[in-house]
Design a binder for these strands. Structure first.
Length: 401
RNA sequence: CGGGGCGUGGCUCAGCCCGGCUAGAGCGCUUGGUUUGGGACCAAGACGUCACAGGUUCAAAUCCUGUCGCCCCGACCA
């Protein structure tokens, strides 16, 4: 799209619609179009890689949940307003899960009986449903969204501390690889219950949370007032919450009877932690902080393409496709713009879509067999032969590995 | 849920205050032609229940009432 849809006020929302990432079905309800879904899958890959590395095991829980497991913890009442509830044809009371603590606790209750089976970290990447009072800013707050939720189960508090630190470390790696300049703070645990909690936040205009920033010390604080280190007055900064981790303790395991036998043969409630990432929310967070007036600038880790190939004039199309094929054989993913469009349209769309590089096959190629490569972020250009082009991307990959 | 704004081809908008002939523009789309290195040009075309319902009137995109939808601020936010 050339023009910004008038309902998209947030930068990330406007760019996501213009670049064809999303389709809005209703307020707070979005479908992912192929390009948006491709980015989402890259983000999920990164998350899986680091979660698995930290020893977590992936599973997939049902979005449909019977209401009675929620009655055990009393959260059917606490979350009443956000929970999307209904009866099926048999009159069974169901909800679409706004989160999965109760469900995972049921699963562990039925499958874990001994301290020998602990510790355990389980996670899923799955759709959550919340009847939000006010969806906003595109994917930032929606009624249906994708979350990575992980749950740890331990026999001891020391064990929980270890798992908590593992998850905290994995989160840092994940957000870094997604190109997010995040900060971490100790947080309130709110309706989750439990004690220790950390929040991961990204500074951005559309953020719904607020932190206080000292420009001198380059540090963020939760409390208003003067900088505790240097006494300078603090600035308010709005922040997007991208992740939140909690030490839950025994709140759920006790309420639902998720007990195991310890070494002395005594029944003990599992000690739990839970760890959430707003996967679909990472899209607006990334775009808000990685874009310019021309469009999106995907960080390398999440870009579905290594480069967008702009072919100027249809005479060069066959040669361009052959070159793209060669590049793909060397492990690159290339988006070839083979549309019959003027050069300007293609250049601008390449900028909008935000691949890290634009490969230009045009008059330089006709004249001297040279290909131009432009970096999306810096807009710097280099002119290369086809062989040099492959080396260029290989070096690029090594530099970022 | 409280406050504010908006709803007219796919997108952005004009027209509405002050009712009147066949509802317009730019972009996009289709066809033909000329173009091709940073959002080209010429020509011909297609696409509209003016959000919906009711009312006022000889006559409603325009006035009145209600409903729905979307956006923003606030409240809320595992």
């Amino acid at each position: 799209m050339r023009e910004v849809p008038k309902d998209a006020e947030a930068k990330s929302h406007a760019l996501a619609l213009r670049a064809g990432l999303l389709f809005m079905a209703s307020a707070g309800i979005y479908s992912y179009l192929p390009l948006g879904f491709a980015v989402l899958k890259k983000i999920e890959e990164i998350i899986r890689k680091h979660m698995n590395k930290a020893g977590a095991c992936e599973l997939f829980m049902s979005a449909l949940q019977p209401i009675d497991i929620w009655q055990k913890t009393g959260r059917d009442k606490i979350l009443e307003e956000v929970m999307i509830r209904f009866r099926d044809r048999r009159g069974r009371e169901l909800c679409l899960g706004p989160t999965h603590e109760e469900m995972i606790t049921e699963i562990v209750k039925k499958n874990v009986f001994s301290y020998r089976q602990l510790p355990l970290i389980l996670y899923q990447i799955q759709t959550k449903f919340r009847d939000e009072p006010r969806p906003r800013f595109g994917l930032l707050r929606t009624c249906e969204f994708i979350m990575k939720d992980a749950y740890s189960f331990d026999a001891t508090q020391e064990g929980l501390n270890v798992n908590y630190q593992k998850m905290l470390g994995a989160y840092q790696d994940i957000f870094k690889e997604c190109g997010l300049n995040f900060i971490m703070t100790e947080a309130d645990s709110g309706a989750m219950g439990g004690s220790l909690s950390h929040e991961f936040l990204v500074p951005a205009e559309i953020g719904e949370d607020m932190l206080y920033f000292c420009t001198k010390c380059n540090a963020y604080y939760k409390k208003e007032g003067k900088c505790p280190k240097c006494g300078t007055a603090l600035l308010t900064k709005s922040m997007i919450e991208i992740g939140h981790i909690f030490q839950l303790g025994v709140k759920y395991s006790l309420a639902q009877g998720a007990l195991f036998l310890d070494q002395e043969g005594k029944r003990q409630p599992a000690i739990m932690g839970c760890y959430g990432i707003g996967v679909s929310r990472l899209l607006p967070a990334i775009i808000e902080t990685n874009s310019d007036d021309k469009g999106i600038i995907w960080p390398r880790g999440v870009s579905p393409f290594d480069a967008t190939m702009v072919v100027v004039g249809d005479a060069l199309l066959q040669e361009a496709l052959a070159l793209a094929h060669t590049l793909e054989k060397s492990g690159l993913t290339i988006l070839v713009d083979e549309r019959i469009e003027s050069a300007g349209v293609k250049f601008n769309d390449a900028l909008l879509l935000g691949s890290p590089y634009t490969i230009v096959i045009g008059k330089n190629y006709t004249a001297s067999g040279k290909i131009e490569v432009e970096a999306r972020k810096t807009r710097e250009k280099v002119t290369l032969s086809p062989e040099e082009l492959i080396n260029f991307f290989n070096n690029e990959r090594e530099r970022n590995a």
